[in-house]
Design a protein around this nucleic acid. Structure first.
Lengths: 206, 206
DNA sequence: TAGCTTTGGCTACTACCTATAGCTTAAGCT
DNA sequence: AGCTTAAGCTATAGGTAGTAGCCAAAGCTA
């Protein structure tokens, strides 16, 4: 007795994880929107229709990957900020950690930040971590304002939108113009550490 | 006599233009990567294989659209700058005109700036106008430096990369988070007019 | 241990897609 | 007026997503 209660559920989860890993490979080779379930099935060694026992549709595979990506990204930006005092000091490392994660998970990033798959929209559950990322940076910026490192309106709607755009701009330029580069070499990601100073130049403390 | 010399060539070009217009519609409905030549053919009233008399492949359609888009965008940023003195004064209106064009041609913008179609890479001819856009803004920034409106290193590699990222960030955030908004209402595009000031805050004149 | 249930595989099939081959009609050039 | 060629067609190959329905084996339960 004392069999692991859900032996079947575990194997099922393992297979699902395996499918997602293969799907990532295929997307890296063929493009995000080029994912073919038939290819995934072949690599897994089963017939294409059998995949539908694990995911009800191609979009469901995308949704699972989207969620996984958002969770990984959230974790990355949180860990980047963790060892530092809240405020500008934490913002830099957090942005860097996020950018680094993106360069190491480009396929997921494309799925998450561009919407390259016709007809695919993430489910609310899959999207939830993205809201947490937004809140994470909002908290950091509010902390910076409270410490007098930024002008108060940096934490306003425009300020937050600008902050989000700054990092999105660098990353999106890097991904589309120089996708092969590492975080350190990238012509654009190289500028990420300067973003807190850029932001502070736009919203200098009074 | 005095027949228009290439009547056939003209009708052919018209049909090609019609195909591209329908393709844009389909992409707007189904997503950029969701373009189906069969659907285009049906709307044009011909059988799918007949489309191949006008374009040798699906990628060729994308390439023609890509080129058309780059040319339109180049034209937009040039016209935006035209009435103004070169330098920061021209940069703002030029960026605005570009952002406006993008919001009015979102499908083309996605094709041009994200790379959502698996396996599609633009031909050098189609890509050429993109280089001209880059050069256009480099010229404006160099002019601003010469007029003493910006610190000299604004025209360096990092400065140009940052400038490109600033606009790319706003536009890319707008497209993925609030694609339905017009240029004026957009939470992100609304900030475009502030970009020259942002850039000047990062590279203040000595 | 015996039997029942559920899971995970299969084949067969539908309905779509891109693209090629080869035929035919009709437009337009000379 | 006749010839050339463009632009349509059908048929076909080979790929995709997804559904229906069957069957064996794994695992739970009495």
């Amino acid at each position: 007795m004392a069999n692991i209660p859900d032996r079947r559920a575990r194997r099922r989860a393992e297979t699902q994880a395996e499918i997602l890993a293969i799907a990532l490979d295929v997307m890296a080779e063929e493009g995000v929107a080029g994912l073919s379930l038939a290819t995934v099935a072949r690599r897994l060694g089963i017939q294409p229709p059998s995949l539908y026992k694990y995911f009800p549709s191609r979009h469901a595979v995308y949704d699972a990957l989207f969620r996984r990506g958002q969770e990984g990204y959230l974790e990355a930006v949180r860990r980047g900020a963790e060892p530092h005092e809240p405020g500008l000091a934490a913002m830099g490392p957090s942005l860097e950690a996020g950018a680094r994660w993106i360069m190491e998970n480009q396929v997921l990033a494309q799925l998450m930040f561009w919407r390259p798959v016709p007809g695919f929209a993430p489910s609310p559950e899959a999207y939830a971590p993205a809201l947490a990322v937004h809140e994470h940076f909002a908290v950091l910026i509010r902390a910076a304002v409270e410490r007098g490192e930024l002008r108060p309106d940096a934490a306003g709607e425009d300020g937050l939108a600008l902050a989000a755009s700054l990092i999105a701009g660098l990353v999106s330029q890097q991904l589309s113009n120089e996708p092969g580069a590492s975080y350190e070499e990238g012509r654009f990601t190289r500028l990420v550490p300067r973003l807190p100073a850029v932001f502070a130049a736009v919203y200098p403390p009074p």
